[in-house]
Every structure is written in structure tokens, then in C-alpha cells.
Design a protein around this nucleic acid. Structure first.
Ligand SMILES: [Mn+2]
Ligand SMILES: [Mn+2]
Ligand SMILES: [Zn+2]
Ligand SMILES: [Zn+2]
Lengths: 143, 143
DNA sequence: ACAATAAATGCAACTGTGTTGCGGTAAGTA
DNA sequence: TACTTACCGCAACACAGTTGCATTTATTGT
């Protein structure tokens, strides 16, 4: 449950002003625990919430290390809350993203690290992004 | 260099008719060896080439195992040529995709396999897609 | 509490990608 | 060569992404 003071802290740390709109968006992310597309968020936000404002909030959150993009071959961009260690200077996301083919939800598996990759000679490694598809815990248990 | 007979074989195996348009698209993929977005392809194709035709060719190639989608957090879908073992029934892509932050090109590293991932209890593994970012061989050598 | 100021919002307008329907065209086949 | 059906090309539309600019509002200092 994201309290107002939590939101305030998060935004202050990021050097962003605390506005009603940003709080609402943060609420959405702390309630749902999955990666969300802009459309997903719009569905749960009040209908008068401005589309462009949401768009800019998402980008600014991404830039300042509050959210990170999640890879997905569906074509639509999704975002998820960053962990502790992310800042404007550096994002740290060496964890796995899991997409459930039953419920279609994508979640961060913060505890699952991406194994070391051995690249061919000449290639320089910077970062790895791993999407695992399968059946999530929820869906595999509920049957 | 993709010869016409190569193209014919590829399409026949996929159960698709050999048309001028499909040949042209296949040419593009065999010449450039990177993953390509629709916009990338349009740039090199003759300008009168129909956008929707290209769209449908890409989807039908994907469905029949000639092309596969490549994950990318840029938002635009990219495609790359599948290896030998892909068919309409099953795609096999347990290899790494590499995105160069200098030239922005994405290529398949067919020889680099995705390591085994150990998921938390309750999660069922189906498939993994890995994008590695860094500097490609070309860019790291040419300086 | 108030004013100053810089950041953030809201609206309009536009670009580009993705998607479907349908009538015409041409590839495969006998 | 003629037939059948896949494929193409065009029109039209849905929707995500993006920018400029005027207005509002959170923050900071008085
Ligand atoms: Mn994550
Ligand atoms: Mn590949
Ligand atoms: Zn699920
Ligand atoms: Zn490069």
C-alpha cells in the first residue's frame, strides 16, 4: 500500500515535485504489482486524467529511476517499479521478467538474477535483459 | 547473397507462394544481417512498395517460421531471419540477441545460447528471450 | 502568509505504426 | 491454357507516441 508519505519520499529522492497526478500514478503501480502499459494505467485512473500528462509522467519516472521499461514482444511498452538501487545516474535491472502465458501479466522476479553471458570476441557487454515466458505461480496453483 | 532459387526454396518449404514482393523482402533480410523494423525495410525497398503488403508479408513470414520477432525496448517491432530449425509448428530461438549502443543495430548471436534459468517454486518455464546490450564487434574494432 | 519562479499540467495538433475489408491480380496446378 | 485461390493494393480507421504552448501549481525564499 503506497502511502502519501511514501510517494513524497520517492519523488523527493528523484528530484520531482509531488503532484496529485504523480501520486495517483504511483498508487496504481504500488497496488498492481505487475508491469503496466499506458493503456492498463488509463483503465484504472479516473477518465478525466490527461493522456499526455500520463505519458510525460511515465517518461520522467523512467528517467529518474522510479520506473523501468519492460521488454515485451507484444509491441506495447510496459513499465514496472524499480527496486531500491535505481537512480537517475544508473539503473540496475539485472533481474528476470516473467510473462505468464495464461494471465498475460508480466512481473519482475527481483530475486532471480540473470546469469553471466559469454559473448564472442570483440563484443563488449553492458547490460542484459531477460524475459522468461511460462506459467506464473498464481496460475499454476489455481487449478 | 540470397539467390532467387534460395528464396523459392524458403517459401516453398513454408507453403507460401513465390511473389516478386516476397522475394524483395527476403533479399533485404539476407543482405542486411540485422534485425529490421518495418520502417527500416521500407527505406531500402522501392518507394512504391505497398506498406500494407509489407506488413502482411512480415506477419506471414513470422507465422510460417521464416522470420522471428526480436525484443527491443525501443517500442518498434523488429524481425530477423530464423535459422534452419524453425517451422510453422515451432519456433526455436534459444539464442541471444545483441543490441549495439553505438550503431543501434540488433543482431542474432546464434552461437550464444541462453543459460538455464532457475525459477522460484510454482513458476513453469516455457521459453526465454535475452537481449544483451553493449558494443558490437564492428563498432569496437573500428576505432 | 505571500510573491516569485520554475516545473508540471492540459489542450491541440500532428506523426507514425498497426490492423481490417474488399475488389482486383497473378501464382500455382492440371 | 484455364481455373482456383492466395496474394496484392488501396482506402479507411484505431491508437500509441510526440511536440509546442498557454495555464496552473508546487516549491522556495521573504
Ligand atoms: Mn523489473
Ligand atoms: Mn534471432
Ligand atoms: Zn499467470
Ligand atoms: Zn555497433
Amino acid at each position: 500500500m503506497g502511502s502519501t508519505s511514501d510517494n513524497k519520499e520517492i519523488l523527493q529522492k528523484a528530484g520531482l515535485r509531488l503532484t496529485r497526478q504523480r501520486s495517483e500514478v504511483l498508487e496504481v503501480f504500488t497496488n498492481k504489482k505487475t508491469a503496466l502499459s499506458q493503456a492498463d494505467i488509463e483503465k484504472v485512473l479516473p477518465p478525466q486524467f490527461d493522456r499526455i500528462t500520463l505519458y510525460r509522467i511515465l517518461r520522467s519516472f523512467e528517467g529518474s529511476g522510479i520506473l523501468h521499461k519492460v521488454l515485451d514482444d507484444s509491441g506495447t511498452t510496459r513499465f514496472a517499479l524499480c527496486g531500491h538501487h535505481c537512480s537517475e545516474e544508473e539503473h540496475q535491472h539485472e533481474h528476470v521478467h516473467f510473462k505468464c502465458s495464461a494471465c498475460e501479466k508480466i512481473q519482475c522476479l527481483e530475486e532471480v538474477e540473470i546469469p553471466q553471458i559469454r559473448l564472442p570476441k570483440g563484443y563488449v557487454f553492458t547490460e542484459a535483459k531477460l524475459l522468461v515466458e511460462g506459467i506464473c505461480k498464481n496460475c499454476s496453483e489455481s487449478r
